[in-house]
Design a protein around this nucleic acid. Sequence first.
DNA 1: CTGTTAGCGCATTCAA
DNA 2: TTGAATGCGCTAACAG
Lengths: 356, 356
Amino acid sequence: MARKKRMATGFTTIKDIARECGVSVTSVSRVLSNSSYPVSAQMREKILKTAQRLNYTPNLFARGLKTNESSEIAILVPNIVNPFYTSLVSGIESVAAKEGYTILLYSTDSNNMSERKIINSIHGKRISGMIISTGSDNGEIIRILQSNSQSPTRIVLVDYPSPSSNHSSVFFDYRKGSALGVEYLIRKGHRDIIYAGLKPDRRTRTERIEGFKDVIEKAGIPFSEEALCIYDGNENAKENPEFFAGTELAKRICAKSKKSTAVVAMNDMVAFGLMNHFNRSGVKIPQDVSILGFDDNLFCEVSYPPLTTVRIPSGQMGELAAKILVDELRNDSADSYINLTIEPTLIERNTVAEVN
Amino acid sequence: MARKKRMATGFTTIKDIARECGVSVTSVSRVLSNSSYPVSAQMREKILKTAQRLNYTPNLFARGLKTNESSEIAILVPNIVNPFYTSLVSGIESVAAKEGYTILLYSTDSNNMSERKIINSIHGKRISGMIISTGSDNGEIIRILQSNSQSPTRIVLVDYPSPSSNHSSVFFDYRKGSALGVEYLIRKGHRDIIYAGLKPDRRTRTERIEGFKDVIEKAGIPFSEEALCIYDGNENAKENPEFFAGTELAKRICAKSKKSTAVVAMNDMVAFGLMNHFNRSGVKIPQDVSILGFDDNLFCEVSYPPLTTVRIPSGQMGELAAKILVDELRNDSADSYINLTIEPTLIERNTVAEVN
DNA sequence: CTGTTAGCGCATTCAA
DNA sequence: TTGAATGCGCTAACAG
């Protein structure tokens, strides 16, 4: 009579099911963990039934303790408010969910969360894999991660330079993207073109400027530093610093004696800032000045006029990164890594005019 | 000599540390798990040192198996692309991180992830608590969650109606928000006001219309169904359905014989759609027509003209929800729940003109 | 095909 | 203040 002690958590366990069915826990485990081990059909049936009836949910702690696997993917991004990261994370999430992985979200901007702490958390949870895309490019995290030789965590990098080469990555070719945009402008007859952006303090920004120069020079247009309009105020001063920078840069551009016919923005938010000031000042877009964005975020369609821009398919990049990771996790393809570089495309809308 | 078998995972365990220090695993556990149990200072010191040296990270599976706690918070949202959810999640994440909780992100839009599946995952992981905010308001998830009496998961609801009352919630008062906006319009002299939005198929939308009617009638303006411009096309047809709906509704409004001086949009995206069409058609905002948004998303500053709108502080709502949850988790405050209703505020920008 | 047994790493009795 | 022993729930040898 005396019911065996069965307090603990109140959750149904395989032991409960075993008792109920009059079979061993092993058999229960075998069917409930989708083991390939042979089990008679009727027993399987019975176990499945009572598992359902008893509302059984496997205790992932126990399972993890045995298998050291969590089916979890950690995402490391600075934040999710920046539209690039929003859709990156969204892309990752969609394929991860489909593949049965759960997403752990770590954002480095949330203070108190040192990279060290994050790594510890990830180790402790025996995370299968992680996708890293923090804006900075010091490679710090990777270094920490690898300094601990115990960690078998699979890593896929997105727009994040790697100090070593033992992981896959998805990069966007910012240099080519920038070039693509400027070529388009030149094709439209522009020759006095300005680049407007924030301090080129990271690779994803320097590359844009390089791409800009590449094409200007190739077109035989004399390049001067004058063509580079850089806002170097505090990036964190405003709620929407890039937009604010755009408005400031537009003022500076308006004040120039030498007039330009087009300005290529570091990204869409900067472009919106430019447009905002131009719109207010009665500078007509694109009649008086053409604007080129970079990102193709949700609001390019929304702005007035709709923004012509170089597209960074961040959602797709997220999906690719996740697919690569899941694939590596499943096939444990030891030392083969795949490194993708995503090609830019130009999205024509209404902010670039033809000049002659 | 024969090293005891110590393969398993390769991670350092408390056993390793115990051996290294020549003490019992018990003592190691006590100091490394921050137990309040008394341990001599020197021993503590020694253990801490070698733990650090050996790069020890507690195995959270093992710990969880004992304690049945994960320090994880699950977030359930339809997606993170909608700006409301972006900042909701962001707000939650920031306080969760600060409090030492990890975020698990579940998005219901990602197909293949039935609510049933999500619940199972959450049970299996012994998630401490969850925050739910799925657009629909059928209460399905709660029902499933509670049908399984085993689940002790703490839940906080955000803009999600509850079929029962045993959990805390954070709501926004859409009705009052809408009223606030319309009152402002009337104060500015508007009397021919139109509401433009999608099908009122959920509470958060019907409330807006009710608030609209409330004020119109209170102002002694005869209300007719004509004033309600509802787009009932397929919401998922376009990439940005709300924006698209806005453009369509603007066309319809332009075609009306009776001219209105103001239109209140269901939300900012719809407002942007309206503005897009008006801008293209040479209808001047706000001289020819005033526009009122709802949300106060990132792009209200960016649009041209900047959008006057009723603010939903979704980031703050996320923070509040997380604070409530963490508090309940820590203090296990049994059956006391707190239900907040967030008050609207009006953000004046440049899309509403004074008429007379 | 089925069951018995051991142990993953940790926190926690209980005894010293 | 310390340590030996137990078991959380599950999976994987190993033996039948």
